[in-house]
Design a protein around this nucleic acid. Structure first.
Length: 98
DNA sequence: TGTGTGACCACTG
DNA sequence: ACAGTGGCCACAC
């Protein structure tokens, strides 16, 4: 079980309609200070993955893609489709940030 | 071995 | 609220 696998296991625990931060997911998996590595893992997921990568945002509650990018729009629409509460480009509750 | 990079974060002014 | 800064850690050259 490598770091990536641990992250996957915790990633799939995030309930629909919720979002967590990279740092929260890292701590959740037992790796404090590894927020950047979580970002690296998600970046390398295949395009057709079934994992809920879009439920991970940064500690400010914002999507970590350029607002005009395709990925940004996909993440936003997926979150909206699940009923995540979003105000002013920020993911609000229900979510676990920090 | 050294260096630059990044889907990050906390702190500061 | 926002930008700058320093810290963080794995990975690719």
């Amino acid at each position: 079980m490598g770091f990536d696998d641990i992250i996957y296991l915790h990633l799939i625990q995030i309930p629909s309609g919720h979002a967590v931060s990279y740092g929260y997911l890292a701590r959740m998996a037992g790796y404090p200070n590894h927020a950047r590595q979580v970002g690296r893992v998600l970046k390398h997921l295949p395009q057709d993955t079934s994992l809920p990568w879009y439920r991970v945002v940064n500690a400010q509650g914002k999507i970590s893609f350029e607002p005009e990018s395709v990925k940004f729009k996909e993440q936003l629409s997926r979150l909206q489709a699940e009923g995540a509460s979003i105000r002013n480009n920020r993911i609000i509750k229900p979510s676990f940030l920090g």
